[in-house]
């Protein structure tokens, strides 16, 4: 039994076929590979989208602005790519898509926080925001 169990380990691994070179990001574009550019704003969208996540400080407004800008920029770049798919590199399309997703996440985080703030103001009034002692007393009373 033990010899049989050992046997498969001794068989040589099947030789993997060589991976074809992947220099051409557009296999369907008929080898058009010369004049491709990066989408101009894809990088900016990606960076803004990532920065929008900790930016949900300041009543969530900063994160909201960064997130929405990244979202709009990313979506615009994706549209631009689909208008003329051969002119731009696929990696920058991926960056634009990632920027859009990050922007959406940042927007959601920022708007959630803004919603919480608005709810608190609506329930307790502005004194809760402006006077930390008032808020502390309120919570002490709740306990």
């Amino acid at each position: 039994m033990s010899e049989e169990q050992l046997e498969p380990q001794e068989t040589p691994k099947p030789i993997q076929p060589p991976v074809p070179p992947q220099n051409n990001p557009f296999p369907h574009s008929g080898g058009f590979n010369g004049m491709q550019q990066n989408l101009p704003n894809a990088t900016i969208a990606l960076i803004l989208g990532i920065l929008s996540i900790p930016g949900c400080c300041c009543y969530g407004i900063l994160g909201l602005i960064l997130g929405i800008v990244a979202w709009v920029l990313g979506a615009g770049e994706i549209k631009k790519f689909h208008l003329n798919p051969n002119a731009y590199t696929e990696s920058s399309l991926k960056n634009a898509k990632a920027g859009k997703v990050c922007g959406i996440i940042g927007t959601v985080l920022g708007s959630l926080y803004l919603l919480i703030i608005i709810l608190i103001i609506a329930i307790y009034g502005f004194a809760f925001i402006q006077d930390p002692n008032f808020a502390k007393e309120l919570i002490e009373n709740m306990k």
Binding site: K94, A98, C102
Partner: peptide, 25 residues
């Protein structure tokens, strides 16, 4: 990633951003 341009870099960034957002939430 922006310098070296990994093949699945954008995908990894998307997942990582979701992960960070969930931690923050």
């Amino acid at each position: 990633h922006l310098k070296a341009d990994f093949r699945s870099g954008a995908q990894i960034i998307k997942i990582a951003v979701g992960f960070v957002a969930i931690i923050i939430l």
